[in-house]
Structure formats: C-alpha cells, structure tokens
C-alpha cells in the first residue's frame, strides 16, 4: 500500500485559477470602471479585509470581539495625526498606525484576555468606547466634532484627482490581497493547524501541545495591526474623521459580523460570500432607509436558523468542496508488484 498526502483538489485548482483571473481583471479596473464603481469596489475590498480579519479572530482563535472598531478608528486617527503633526507621507502614516496599533493591542490583550466568551465580547466593546472617548478629548484632532484631511496632504498622494482615485483603489485591493494571503498561508502552516484545533476544542488543543494563550495573543496583535491599517485606508478614502464615524460599532463591527456569520464563520470562503451578499443587499435596498437594516436583520436570522454554519458551510458540507485548500487528503493506492 502506497500512501500519499495531498492538499489541493481538482475543484480547488480550478476555482483558484478562476479567482486569479478575476483578480487580474479587477486590477485593471481603473481603466474600465467609472469613478463611482471604483469607489464602491474599494469599499468592498476594505470591508472584505475587515471580515477576513474578524473571522480569523472569532472563527479560528475563538476571540469573539465586538470592539474591532477600536482599531479601525485608531488607524484612521493615526493617519490624521501623523500626516498633520508629524508631516509624514499618508501611506507611511497608515503603516505606522498599524505598528502602533500592534503595540497598543498588547496591554489591551493582557487586560481583556482575563475575560471569556460573552464577557470578553463586552470587554472589547468597552475598550473601543474608551478609545472613542479618549480621541474625542484630543482637541488638536478636532475633539468631538472631528477634522478633515488638509488639501496639501491629499495632494501629496498624487496631483490629479483620477490618479489619486487609482492609487486609493490599488491601496485597497493591495491590502486585501496582503491580508488574505497572510491569513491563507498562516492557516496552511503548522500554526494554522494549531489554530484550527483551538477553533474545534480549546481544552483538548492545550493538552495536545498547543500554547493556546500565546497563539491567541499573536492572532489578536496581528489582526489589530492589520485592522488599523485597513482603518487608515478607510479614512484616507473618506478624507474626514470624527469619533462617531471612526469608532462606529455599527459600521465596523456589526456589519462585519453580519458578513462573516451569513457567509460562514471559521472558513476562508465565508467572508467572501458574505461580503458579496452584504453589498448586493445594500446596493439594491439602500433607498429604503431603515427598512434596509430590518431586512438585513431578517436575512441574518433566517441564515442562522437554516444554515448555522453560514452559506458556505451549507455548500461545502453538501458537496465537500474547498476553494482554498487547507485540508489534507490521505490517498492510498495499491501498488502492484509485478516484473
């Protein structure tokens, strides 16, 4: 008997090829898409990035946070503070914001990691509120009413408006590719299999050699840093920041949870499907005002009842499919001993 272990399947190879083609097409969007579409696509990429990051934390590391807006807002504010007062380039400011978020997430983690489950979730929300109230106190950044990014800084990105829009688009798609690739390769590594073990049974994982606390801390720090970078990009698109917008639990956490839960938590594919559905609903129903939010809630409830593992969970269970090959397959082939 000859035994082989493979990871990719014919389906995953095909699906990845289609996806790669799609990415190439999307990379050329500044040449064929209009201003409004480009903006919408950029927003989709940033939301998908946030969803992937939240999914890594909640779906794999078991850190169900409702306070990731803390880092979205922090990243946004760092962009404004570092460009206006330190005079550094916006892109450098966004990256620096990510590093600062990583630094600040460590003391935050030592505090909130003492809490479990629902208490942890509430703890993260409290931290986000503390962030919001703290930034509202900083009068140099506009206090409670916020501030706009000065024209000179906006122009430092590129001279023409269309060039700026292209740059902003590429920053968004580039960071999505970065975030997604980082998560994909992490989950394929030895760390990833430890993380998946934590997802399935935390106490058993600990007794099988997985350092649960350290793994969770690493995930928390990395997701916080990347979330802050995405936050910086979001407010580079908006060009205006205020404590309410920067630390909005609705915009940066509730919608993200909706995306991940209906798409399929604890899978790489789930956030993609969730993001597509979220934006389809938003773009078709946005004119209905608050009714749109009620429909969103209804969709979430129906999906949670009918498909607790999300839409991708439903599909993958039924057809045993995987777009991004994380699983291992053991293949046995009888070797004939002839000649």
């Amino acid at each position: 008997m000859n035994t082989r272990v493979t990871r990719s399947s014919r389906f995953s190879n095909g699906a990845l090829a289609v996806l790669a083609l799609l990415v190439v097409v999307l990379l050329t969007a500044p040449w064929w898409a209009g201003r409004a579409e480009l903006r919408l696509f950029g927003e989709i990429y940033l939301y998908l990035s946030l969803a992937c990051l939240w999914n890594l934390m909640a779906g794999y590391a078991g850190l169900v946070s409702v306070g990731q807006q803390a880092y979205v807002g922090f990243g946004g504010y760092m962009l404004f503070a570092l460009t206006i007062y330190a005079g550094i380039h916006p892109v450098a400011a966004i990256i620096a914001g990510g590093l600062l978020a990583a630094a600040i997430s460590i003391p935050v983690a030592t505090l909130i990691f003492r809490l479990n489950g629902a208490y942890f979730a509430i703890g993260t929300w409290v931290v986000a509120e503390v962030f919001r109230l703290s930034f509202a106190q900083v009068s140099a950044l506009g206090g409670g009413s916020g501030s706009s990014l000065p024209v000179a800084i906006v122009k430092s990105l590129a001279d023409s408006r269309s060039a700026r829009e292209s740059l902003s688009y590429y920053l968004a798609i580039g960071s999505l590719i970065l975030v997604f690739a980082a998560i994909y390769f992490l989950l394929r590594s030895n760390r990833g299999i430890a993380l998946t073990a934590i997802r399935d049974n935390e106490s058993a994982a600990a007794e099988l050699g997985v350092n649960v606390w350290r793994t969770k801390l690493e995930i928390y720090v990395v997701t916080s840093a990347l979330t802050a970078i995405i936050g910086g990009l979001i407010f580079l698109q908006k060009l205006r920041i205020s404590p309410e917008a920067a630390f909005s639990v609705n915009d940066w956490t509730a919608f993200v949870i909706f995306i991940v839960v209906i798409g399929g938590i604890g899978t790489l594919e789930g956030p993609i499907i969730g993001t597509i559905i979220f934006f389809l609903l938003r773009e078709t129903l946005a004119d209905f005002g608050t009714t749109y939010l009620m429909i969103l809630g209804l969709v979430a409830i129906i999906v949670m009842i009918k498909a607790p593992k999300g839409l991708w969970g439903l599909i993958s269970q039924r057809y045993d499919l995987e777009i991004f090959p994380l699983r291992y397959r053991v293949q046995q082939s009888a070797t004939t001993e002839q000649g």
Partner: peptide
Amino acid sequence: KPFVGMTVFENCLV
C-alpha cells in the same frame, strides 16, 4: 474530544 471540524488524519497531525 476530537477536533470535530477536522479529519481523522488532521487530528493526528495536530
């Protein structure tokens, strides 16, 4: 206490 979302092989691989 198996890791229910994983295959038998993956459980051992952990």
